[in-house]
Nucleic acid binder design. Structure first.
Length: 310
DNA sequence: GCCCAGGGGTAGT
DNA sequence: ACTACCCATGGG
């Protein structure tokens, strides 16, 4: 591995962007921070990324792996893939105005002001464009699991396959295993990793997941996407909405987890099942309800008193 | 030990 | 359709 095999690019970002929030708000679980650098995979290529807030500059380094095809070989392609992955084409001002006008139309004027504050506190948080397979497996395993525990589960799973290893600076990083690779495992293997009752779900998913089905789902309607996902054991409304939002960029998807349902109860005094609260969220926040949800989640979990502080 | 976690399935109303 | 209860496991 020589230095000129590594592709470095840096450029100024002209829109609001917050790298830490993007990678640390519970939508992706395998990015690792080492000092100022984040390490993770985009389209199966390992990247080292840092963002300098003071001069709005992102610095990226693509780290060559041994056995993966090079998907970013010409000048500028790294940048295009990175911009797409981080949702830099989403207009946050448009999204913000859409959410606020929906709140007002629904009679939540009193809350619109609060939401402006929530939005400005997490400004630059963006919905990532992740691989659907990895998102599906990750959120299938997320049930009744806190985020640090989920990250450990996924790490343990990835480490089973040394062929996916990419080394850099004395540390090993692993590409996420493909469906065909996971098909080599059985339920007992998953239980040994501590997946518990989710092991059987994952076996079913690996057996039934069809790359073409999940790909062609992109052109289906919202309702058909949702009902298809719900046919898998272990995928209920919450997990399905996460797959829609983080895997299919369906920006009106509104995942209702324990943080969000507690927050809705506290602020609006509304309770209900996951699907009812999801519908409520989509009505209240509109076509970008998923963005509203993520800003609220980041606010509750990372920024509010009692939250985690990044 | 206790309580909780980016919930889902199911049996009983 | 709604509810209550169970489900494995790890972290704080």
């Amino acid at each position: 591995m020589t230095m000129r095999d590594e592709r470095q690019e840096s450029w100024k970002i002209q829109v609001p962007f917050h790298l830490d929030y993007c990678l640390n708000c519970g939508q992706a679980f395998r990015w690792k921070k080492r000092g100022k650098h984040w390490f993770g995979f985009i389209n199966d290529n390992l990247y080292r990324i840092e963002y300098d807030e003071s001069n709005k500059t992102i610095r990226t380094l693509r780290i060559p792996g041994d056995s993966v095809r090079t998907t970013a070989d010409y000048e500028g392609e790294n940048r295009l893939q990175i911009e797409r992955y981080f949702g830099l084409n989403d207009s946050l001002s448009t999204i913000r105005e859409s959410i606020l006008s929906n709140l007002r139309e629904n009679g939540y004027n009193w809350f619109a002001l609060k939401f402006e504050e929530i939005f400005s506190k997490s400004l630059g948080l963006r919905i990532l464009r992740q691989d659907v397979w990895e998102v599906t497996v990750s959120f299938l395993l997320s049930t009744q699991t806190n985020i640090p525990a989920l990250e450990k589960k996924l790490d343990a799973l990835c480490r089973l396959f040394p062929e996916n290893e990419v080394r850099y600076d004395g540390e090993s990083f692993y590409r996420f295993p493909k469906k065909g690779t996971l098909a080599l495992l059985c339920e007992e293997d998953y239980k040994r990793l501590g997946f518990g009752y989710r092991s059987a779900w994952l076996c079913q998913l690996v057996r039934r997941f069809s790359e073409s089905d999940f790909h062609s789902l992109r052109t289906e309607t919202y309702e058909r996407k949702l009902s298809f996902l719900l046919t898998f054991p272990g995928i209920g409304y919450k997990v399905a909405h996460c797959i829609l939002l983080f895997g299919y960029s369906v920006l009106k998807a509104f995942p209702v987890d324990i943080w969000i349902s507690r927050w809705i109860k506290e602020v609006f005094d509304i309770e209900g099942a996951h699907d009812q609260l999801a519908t409520w969220g989509q009505t209240a926040f509109g076509e970008y309800a998923g963005y509203a949800q993520e800003y609220i989640f980041n606010f509750c979990r990372n920024l509010a008193p009692g939250g985690r502080e990044i």
